[in-house]
Amino acid sequence: MSSPVLAVRDAGFAYRGAAPVLHGVSLEIAAGRSVAIVGESGAGKTTLLRLLLGLNRPTGGEVLFDGQPLDLRNRARMRAFRRSVQSVFQDPYSSLDPRQRVRRIVSEPLRSLGLAGPDTDGRVAAALAGVGLPADAGDRYPHEFSGGQRQRIALARATVCDPRVLLADEPVSALDVTTRVRIVDLLGELKESRGLTIAMVSHDLSVVAALCEHTAVLESGRVVEQGDTREVLGAPSHPYTARLIASVPRLLSALRLEKHDG
């Protein structure tokens, strides 16, 4: 197993004046792997993702990037970190600035990280093509696109600077099921073709099963179980994981009932 690009070690977090949201969370994200952080609302998934994204500092423990503790004050290191770690969010309507054209949105990481140059337009076009959007998409505004297309734009922005890691917060849960399949396929494709490491927060176990090799189950701010997705979901050792799996609504259960009836 390769060394982790990103890791949290014994991390805790509490918002000021509030009860802790995370307790002693340890998680490793190995290069080229896809990792799911699974749990229900209030479990601390999004907070954990914010720690991994360097948006909040853990109140206990540490976040490691390439084996080094992440120091939010070290600008040179943070620049290298931002270039390597990009993000996608849940709500495709809130994650794109409504007053910017798509070209400007997608090129933002290049401009902000000092990577802009004569090849910027080419890289934006390549990123748009890479997520299956037409070249003329760059001239339009976000409101002219559907939810799935917007999520593609967000993915183009996240991949335009050739990052190593993509951190995604419920990237498909706001999408229709047919669109969801396509975006999950696209994520899998990006992972394969670019060797992208993916860490995804999700409440949807079937999406996790379709995309992620490693799964960590979070309950009330604690990792109750983690490991290979096949083992965690196939043979859950923690009762909460088992309950999560049993709760997933299934088409097949409906069909089985029908068979019993007739």
Binding site: R180, S206, A209, I245, L252
Partner: peptide
């Protein structure tokens, strides 16, 4: 068909494991 297949895609991914 596309609705059912999409739903099945995810379900099968989970079924295969569980």
């Amino acid at each position: 068909r596309s609705l059912v297949e999409s739903a099945r895609t995810f379900e099968n991914a989970l079924e295969r494991i569980t």
